[in-house]
Design a protein around this nucleic acid. Structure first.
Lengths: 337, 337
DNA sequence: CTGTTAGCGCGTTCAA
DNA sequence: TTGAACGCGCTAACAG
C-alpha cells in the first residue's frame, strides 16, 4: 500500500479511502490511485484488514460430512449467499463428533470468523453455547440445540413424516408400517419417528421402529428378519436417503417386489429417485432453501450485530412427492397439499 | 496475549515461545503461562500470526460446484488431509466459469492462503498461470491446465474409456456404440471421448459422439432420435454420472430395455449404481484418492516451499466394474485387470 | 479533501 | 533464558 501511495503521490490514507469509499476523495487523486493500483497489481491484504479490528468478511461452516449430498447442497447454498454478501467461507467437517465440532468451532474463532453456521453433531452434548462463543453469531440448521439464542432453520420433520405414513394408511390401507431409522441419537430421526408414531397411534396401530440400521449389513439383517415373519410388514417408512438406499438394497436382495409386496416411502428426495424402479415416493425437503435461509439469517445478525435472547426458529415446509413405490399409479401428480 | 503475560508475570515473548515451542523456556515459567492461558481462555489470533509474515495455515479450494457428489467428495478428502496437517480450508465455487475462478483465486490470495487446489473451469482460458500467482503453490486436479509448473492429479480417462468400449465390442459384440458427452469444452469429455474413439477406430468402426447432452431435455431428444433410426445404436457409453442419468431417464421414458435392447456403460461409479435396475456397469475412478493425493502434493510443496519448473503429473488408475447394464450376467465379478 | 499518528496481536531481532 | 522495541498492512481518529 505504501508503494501505491508513493507511486500515486498521495498518502496511504487516501489509498485506503479510495479502496473503501469511506470518505470523499478528489476525482484526480482517486484516478492516480487507481492507476497506481493497476500498475503495481496491488491487492489489499485481508488479514491486515481483519486484524485492524473490523470484520474478517469470513464465515465458517461446520457440517458432519461433505460427501453426503444433503450437506454438500447446503454448503453450496450457503457459499452462494456468502458470495452475494462479499464473504468468504471456511468450511470443515465434524464427522458427527461433538468434540471435533467444538475444536473446529474454536479454530474458526481463532481465525476471527464473523459468524458460524453449524449442523450440530449431537444436540445433547453440544458445547456451542459456551461462553467463548458469546460474541460470535451462530446459526444452526437441520438440527436445533438447546440454546435459545441461536437462530435455527429446520424442516417439517414431524408433520411431513406423519403425512407420508397417513398416505400409506389411508390411500393404500397399510396396517403394519415399520420405521427404519439410523440411530436414536439424531434429532431428525427422533422428530421423523415422532410423526410416524403419531400417525400410527391415531390410526390405532402399533409403532414399530428399528433404530439399528446404520449400515447395509445391519439393515439387511433387520429387513430379512421382518420379511420372514408370519405377518410381515406391508410398508416401510425410511428416515433418510441412506436408510432408503439400505432398505431398497435389502429388499432387492431378498427379491421382494415394490410396491406389490411391500410399499416404501423415504424422507428426502434425490436425483435418482425417479429413475429407480419403481420410482420412489418421498418427502421432499427444500434443501437449498434451508441453506439460503440460514445464511440470510446469519448475515442479518452480522449486519445488525445483535445478540438476542431468543433466536428465530424457522421451519420450512416439506412436500410429499407421490411416485410409485407407495403403490400409487404412475400419474405423476403430487399429493393435494 | 498481554493479559496472559501479565497474569503469568512474564513478558509477551515468553508466552509466544511457550505457544510455539520456538525457544527454550524454564519449566516453571511455562507452567505459569499455561495456567494463565487456561484461566483467561486465551486463544492466539491466527490473523495476527498470519500477518506477521509467516504462514496462514490456510489453503483454498475452488471447485465448479459443490452439489455434485464428485466434487464434494474431493473437497471432503482435501479437508481431511488439511486437518491432518493442522490447516484450515477456504472453499468456494467457480460455477465452471473461468472469470469467476480467477476472481475467487485472487480473493484467496488476498486472504493469504498458503496454497490453492483447483479444479480448473476451462483449460483453455485459465488465468491461473498469471504472474500474480507466481508465489502461490497451486495444484490442479481432475483437469490439467497448460502451465507445466503446477502439480496435477488426473485419472486414466482415456484408457479407462477405451477398455469399457472394448468390453462392449469384444464381450458383447456391439458395433454401433454412441458416446454421450456433456459438451466438448471439458477436458475430461475430450479425454474420455478419445479413448472411445480409439477403441472404435481400432475395431474398424465409426465413432459417433454426441456432445450436446447438457440437460435432460437435450439428451432425451438425442436418444429418441437415435433409437428411432433404422439400425439404432446397440450400446451407449456415457461420459459421466450426469449424462448416465440423463441417458437412463431417456431410455426409461422410451421404454427401451437395458441391456436387452441397448447396453450401457457409464464413467464414474455412484452409490445407487448397483441398486438401479439393471445394475450399472461403470468405470470407477478413485475419487477420494484423487483428493488425498492432490492435497499431499500441495502440502509437500508448502513444506519445502519449492516452485519447480515442471510439476508432477500423477495419473491414478480406474477400474471397470462389471455389473449388468453391459449385458453381462449377474456374477458380480470384476473385469480381469 | 488530505496527511499524520497510533495501534490491532503477534513474532523476529537484539540486547540484557 | 528472558524482555523491549519494532514492524507486518491496514484503518479510526484526529489534525491540517
Amino acid at each position: 500500500m505504501n508503494d501505491v501511495a508513493r507511486v500515486a503521490g498521495v498518502g496511504t490514507m487516501t489509498v485506503s479511502r479510495v479502496l473503501n469509499e469511506s470518505a470523499p476523495v478528489s476525482a484526480e487523486a482517486a484516478e492516480r490511485v487507481y492507476r497506481a493500483i493497476e500498475k503495481l497489481g496491488y491487492r489489499p491484504n485481508e488479514m491486515a484488514r481483519a486484524l485492524r479490528g473490523l470484520k474478517s468478511r469470513t464465515i465458517g461452516i461446520i457440517v458432519p460430512y461433505l460427501y453426503d449430498p444433503f450437506f454438500a447442497t447446503i454448503a453450496h447454498a450457503i457459499n452462494t449467499v456468502a458470495k452475494e454478501n462479499g464473504y468468504s467461507v471456511i468450511l470443515t467437517t465434524s464427522n458427527e463428533d461433538p468434540d471435533s465440532e467444538y475444536a473446529e468451532a474454536q479454530l474458526m474463532l481463532q481465525r476471527r470468523v464473523d459468524g458460524l453456521i453449524v449442523i450440530p453433531a449431537d444436540a445433547h452434548r453440544s458445547r456451542l453455547s459456551r461462553a467463548e462463543f458469546d460474541k460470535t453469531h451462530i446459526v444452526t440448521l437441520d438440527r436445533p440445540v438447546q440454546d435459545r439464542r441461536f437462530d435455527t432453520v429446520l424442516v417439517q420433520n414431524q408433520s411431513g413424516s406423519k403425512r407420508a405414513v397417513q398416505h400409506l394408511q389411508r390411500e393404500h390401507g397399510h396396517k403394519r408400517v415399520v420405521f427404519i431409522g439410523l440411530n436414536k441419537h439424531l434429532y431428525t430421526v427422533r422428530a421423523r419417528f415422532e410423526g410416524y408414531r403419531r400417525a400410527m397411534l391415531e390410526a390405532g396401530l402399533q409403532p414399530e421402529p428399528s433404530f439399528k440400521c446404520g449400515s447395509q449389513e445391519l439393515t439387511s439383517a433387520v429387513i430379512a428378519g421382518l420379511v420372514r415373519e408370519k405377518n410381515p410388514p406391508t410398508a416401510f417408512f425410511c428416515f433418510n436417503n441412506l436408510t432408503t438406499r439400505y432398505t431398497l438394497r435389502a429388499l432387492l436382495d431378498l427379491g421382494v417386489k415394490i410396491p406389490e409386496e411391500v410399499a416404501l416411502i423415504g424422507f428426502d428426495d434425490f436425483e435418482l429417485a425417479e429413475i429407480l424402479h419403481p420410482n420412489l415416493t418421498v418427502v421432499r425437503q427444500p434443501i437449498y432453501e434451508v441453506g439460503r435461509v440460514a445464511a440470510s439469517l446469519l448475515f442479518d445478525r452480522i449486519k445488525c450485530n445483535e445478540f438476542p435472547e431468543d433466536g428465530n426458529k424457522i421451519v420450512l415446509p416439506v412436500e410429499l412427492i407421490i411416485r410409485r413405490s407407495c403403490g400409487c399409479k404412475p400419474s405423476g401428480r403430487n399429493a393435494a397439499d
